[in-house]
Every structure is written in C-alpha cells, then in structure tokens.
C-alpha cells in the first residue's frame, strides 16, 4: 500500500493517492472547483495554486464553502 498516504480532510482521517494534487482531491470528493475554498495546514491555497500542490502525509486540509449566516 505504498501508493497511499494519510491526510486529514475537514478533521477526518482519509487515505489518498500519493502525489495527488489538491485540485484532483476537490474533484474526487465531488465538488466543483468554484464552490470550495481550500486551506492546508492553516494556510490558504488559492484556487490557481491547487494544481501545483501535491498532498503530503499528515496534511491537514480544510474544504469550506458558504452557508447561511448573519
């Protein structure tokens, strides 16, 4: 199983393919690119930079979107 690494996505432990980029993770999880903003290890990864970011073991990834609020 050397082809998989463990990351945390929205606080949950998940396994992803080694070398997977953020943009691919967004799509793999069924999200449109423009309905999500992404943070890795507390830093924003801007939309254009997602394709260049390869996920690393133990990365803490946040996917967020908008919800109703005041």
């Amino acid at each position: 199983m050397s082809g998989l690494i463990g990351i945390h996505l929205n606080g949950e432990a998940v396994q992803v393919q080694k070398g997977l980029c953020l943009e691919e993770l967004v799509r793999e999880r069924g999200h449109a690119s423009n309905e999500v903003a992404v943070e890795v290890n507390r830093d924003l990864v801007p939309r254009p930079a997602r394709a260049e970011y390869s996920l690393q073991e133990e990365d803490r990834v946040e996917f967020v979107t908008l919800v109703g609020g005041g």
């Binding site: 996505l9 929205n10 309905e35 999500v36 979107t65 908008l66 109703g68 005041g70």
Partner: peptide, 22 residues
C-alpha cells in the same frame, strides 16, 4: 447579503444552493 463560511461536507451537492440564490 451576509453569508458564513463553513466546512463543506463530502457529497453534499444539493440541486440548488445558497450561492445560486445570491
């Protein structure tokens, strides 16, 4: 209009969302 920012649940793709309304 104001909106909040929250974690996106996997696979939570509704037909129409707040973004569409806005």
């Amino acid at each position: 209009v104001t909106v909040a920012i929250r974690r996106l649940d996997a696979g939570a793709t509704e037909e129409r969302c707040l973004m569409d309304v806005v």
